[in-house]
Every structure is written in structure tokens, then in C-alpha cells.
Amino acid sequence: MSDAAIHPTAIVGQHARIGKGVKIGPYCIVGDKVILHDNVELVSHVVIDGNTEVGAGSRIFPFASVGLQPQDLKYHGENSRLVIGERCTIREGATLNPGTEGGGMLTKIGNDCLIMASAHVAHDAIIGNNVIMANYVGIAGHCQVGDNVIFGGNCVVHQFTRVGAHAFIGAHSMVDGDVIPYGMAVGNRAVLTGLNLVGLKRRKFDREEIHKLRAAYRMIFASEGTLRERVEDAAELFKGNALVQDVVAFIAAASDRPILLPRNGPTLD
């Protein structure tokens, strides 16, 4: 801890593990079991407790509550964990809770995530890399969020919901069904409104691969036959397209889960 810059008003547990270059600002509280890797910064008034690990280069802003007891009545003091990846930014008033015995004992945030002010990540949620949660987003317990997902402000996501990689969730949406990879969902209750084409183009996906994904989307969410039949047809027809296969695998992985569907068919702009 000799290399760390700790403000005299901060309270740091005797057994906390503090990496090189860590900055702990005024009035922060760091619990005994906390691990702060190199160059983590707690700006001020941060409370971080429990069996919590914060990856190198992450910054946590004032009044964030990180690693405290889950908001779950089934929690009975089990030694569950919260792991936050590298280079994450957690803004003012955000709340992140550890896991529970009923959900794998782990809440995990990937690398390079931005969790804006007053957002919430509940117990046992697994969040991928490069995820952006705008203000007041609420991720309920046991959710799974893939890489590069963007949530607009005031979104809420129902427990156990999966959101596939590169999806976009529009502001003020209430998501109570799984969102396919590369999909775009909006509304209360949310419906699938197409593919996140803007995100795909910004991330330099191949144009031809995007065209094939659009064709597969129309096939999967057409009205003829069952969803299972249409998914199987798309898997066969587009077997060489990695984007389509991501969608197919996502749907097949949890056939008992509700999945968001388009309200008026699969029309794409």
C-alpha cells in the first residue's frame, strides 16, 4: 500500500489489498476483503465492501455503492463475490451487488464498461466487455449481457433475461424477454425493432456479412412455420456466416426462455 495515495479522511480495511498507483479520495470506505488492482481511482465518498475485486485502471465516482449486500431476501450472508474488470468507469450513485448462493455466487462486470450515474447491476448478473449503461439503467438479478451492448437511459431489464452481443436497447424500455445478438429493442414492454445496423457499421463489420444477417433476420422472424423451424432453416442456409450463427446459437441455447419478437413482422429499413 506504500505506493497508493490515500486521503487522510478515507477508511481502508487493514486486510484490503491495494495495488500500485491506487488513488483513494476523501471520505471513501474500503472494506477488509476488497482488492483494488493497479491504478484504480476512487474519486471521493465511494463505499466499496464485501468480497469485491476492481480491475486495473478503473475509476469509481462519488457516492457509488459497490459490493454491499445484495437486494435479495434469499441472501443469507454467503461469501459471494463481485468482480469488476479493467478500465471501467462507474459514475455517481451507481449500485453494484455481489452474487448469491442461488445464482452462482458471482456478479461480474467485463473490461472497459461505462456504468453511468444511478445505474444498478443486481446480484448474479454477468456483464460483458465494452458495455454502456446510461443513467438509471436497472439490470435485475441473474441477467446475462453480451459484449458491446448499449442501454439507453432509464431502461430496466427483467431478471434472468439475456441480451446478446452488440444489441442496442432504446431509452425508457422495459425488457422482459431475451434480445438476440445484433438486435435492437425499444418500448414498454419492449419489442424487437430490427437490427442494430448503426452499431454494426460503426464497428466495421463486413457489409456483405451484414446483408446476409438482414436476410436471416427476415427469415427467422417471418410468419410461416414455427420459430424453431425458421431458425433451423437459417442455420443451414447461412452456415458460413458467423453473425447469423451467433443469433442461431443464442436462440437455441435457451429454448425455454421468452424471446423478444417484432410487433409487426421483420421489416427492416
Rank of each mutant, 00 (worst) to 15 (best):
Y182W: 10
G194Y: 14
S173R: 08
L192G: 03
P98H: 07
C155G: 10
G141N: 08
I150C: 09
G177C: 04
R218L: 02
V121W: 12
A215G: 15
V121A: 04
N188M: 06
G199T: 03
T161L: 04
G99A: 01
N188V: 07
S173C: 02
Y217W: 09
G104Q: 02
F160S: 10
G110V: 00
V156K: 05
M174H: 11
L200I: 01
Y182L: 00
G225N: 11
C143L: 05
S223D: 15
G152Y: 11
S173V: 04
E101N: 14
G199N: 11
M105Q: 11
T193E: 04
R203F: 08
G199K: 06
G128T: 03
G194F: 11
Y136A: 15
L192N: 06
H142Q: 15
R202V: 13
D178I: 06
G199R: 08
S223F: 15
F205H: 13
A165V: 02
I180W: 01
C155K: 06
D206R: 15
I127W: 10
V175R: 08
D147R: 13
D176Y: 12
V179A: 05
Y136T: 14
F151P: 06
D124E: 13
N111E: 05
A122Q: 07
A167H: 10
N196Q: 10
M174C: 14
K201V: 06
I139A: 11
R207F: 13
V163T: 05
V175F: 02
A167G: 12
Y217H: 12
G110L: 01
G128Q: 04
R207I: 13
M105D: 02
K212E: 14
G187E: 02
F168C: 09
K212V: 05
K108A: 14
G225M: 07
D178Q: 07
I139Q: 08
H123K: 12
G170A: 15
A134K: 06
N148L: 00
F151I: 06
P98M: 04
V137M: 05
T100N: 05
V156D: 00
D178V: 06
V156S: 09
A122R: 15
T161Q: 06
G183E: 00
M133Y: 07
P98W: 08
D176V: 06
Q144D: 04
G170R: 12
H158I: 01
V145P: 00
M133C: 03
V198F: 10
L195P: 00
R189W: 10
G164W: 01
R203Q: 14
H158S: 07
A167K: 11
P181T: 02
V131I: 02
T161Y: 07
F168H: 15
A117P: 03
I210L: 01
V186I: 12
N135A: 11
E209C: 09
M105Y: 11
A119L: 04
A122I: 05
A167I: 03
G164I: 02
G153R: 07
A125N: 12
G164H: 07
D147T: 13
A125E: 07
